[in-house]
Amino acid sequence: MNAVASNQLDGDGRVRVSLAELIALRSRVARLRLPPQDSRATRVGIQSSRLYGRGMDYAESRAYQPGDDVRRLDWRLTARSGRLHTKLFQEEREGQLLILLDRHASMHFGTRVRFKSVQAAKAAALAAWYAVRAGERVGLMQFGGYTHLQRPRAGLHGALDVCGALAKGDTFVSDHREPLSQVLQHVIKFQHGANRVLLISDGQCSDELARHRLLEMMRHTAVRLLVVADALELTAVPAGHYPIEHEGQRRTMVLESARQRESFQKSLGAGQVRLVATAQSLGVPSRIIDTASDPMDAVTALLRDGGKRR
């Protein structure tokens, strides 16, 4: 991405995604101590053993990366392409993380620090940097008014591709609604070998069929859920008069009684409550963060050890 394009996509980090901030998150992840990798290849979502020997099934070849064992070079493909390629075997297939990011209009809302859409993008970027540091490929699928698939890719380029796609996707806002079940059905068909999926959403797009789609996905993929919510969706607001703006029109919302405030909070937070309840019923590890918190702990907990259900 050239400097001009980068400047055009770089927002303020509050109502628009800051590309520079997403890229800078790399340094924070670099300071983390990653847990030792589990070598058991039978567990979904865990990186496979790097052992090399006879009896291993050939899986695929990929471009050579610094540190690869030269004994595993695919000489035939190297000769044909003119570039070094390494053979991968079934037990050592690279882990792949696919991030599903909700881009519905409801995400472009926030009363504390930043919009939900910006917080979600920060979380997605942290997940991308974490994945590539752990040796995984990382991809991104954005949905809800703006649909875009960034195919899983390894290393620095993989994380940078995700950051660039996040910044570009943030420039689109649409009233189009896409049920979560429809998105998951598409992912199940075209998930491009991902063995881990991180869904980031505010839950407003969740529907009844989403539970069945999640269950189907879990048969082949380790699923994690990160719900991004605004403070108004999590707790009842104090009594008072609140100015709101929608489609260029400004109005004042009066919330005086406890019943009014509780009803308002429940209506706003219905989506995240519904999605978290679905995840808990299926045993999907989940976390909830608000727009003012640091998403680092939630993201690393979900990707490191699956997290504890909440």
Rank of each mutant, 00 (worst) to 15 (best):
D12F: 12
D12N: 13
G13K: 09
S18R: 06
R33H: 09
P35R: 15
Q37M: 09
I46V: 11
S49T: 15
L51F: 05
G53A: 06
G55P: 01
R62W: 08
A63M: 09
V70G: 00
R72H: 03
L73E: 00
R76C: 00
R80Q: 14
R83K: 12
H85A: 03
E92G: 15
L98V: 04
L100Q: 02
L101F: 04
S106I: 00
G110E: 07
T111L: 04
R112M: 08
V113H: 09
S117P: 05
S117M: 09
Q119P: 00
A128I: 07
A128W: 02
V132F: 04
V132D: 01
R133K: 14
R137H: 11
V138R: 02
Q142P: 00
G144N: 07
G144C: 09
G145Y: 07
Y146E: 12
T147Y: 05
T147S: 12
R153H: 04
H157S: 11
G158K: 04
A159I: 03
D161E: 13
A165H: 11
S174M: 02
D175L: 11
R177G: 00
L180V: 06
Q182C: 00
V183W: 01
H186K: 08
K189T: 11
D207Y: 12
D207E: 07
E208Q: 11
E208P: 03
E208H: 11
A210C: 03
R211L: 13
L215M: 06
R219E: 14
H220F: 12
A222S: 13
L234N: 01
V237C: 11
G248A: 05
R251S: 14
T252Y: 01
T252K: 09
L255C: 10
R259D: 15
R261G: 05
R261V: 01
F264A: 11
A270R: 14
A270E: 15
V276S: 10
T278M: 15
T278V: 13
A279Q: 05
P285T: 03
R287D: 06
I288D: 02
I289L: 08
T291F: 02
D294Y: 01
D297T: 11
A298I: 07
V299A: 02
A301V: 02
L302E: 08
G306C: 05
K308P: 00
R309I: 14
R310P: 15
R310E: 12
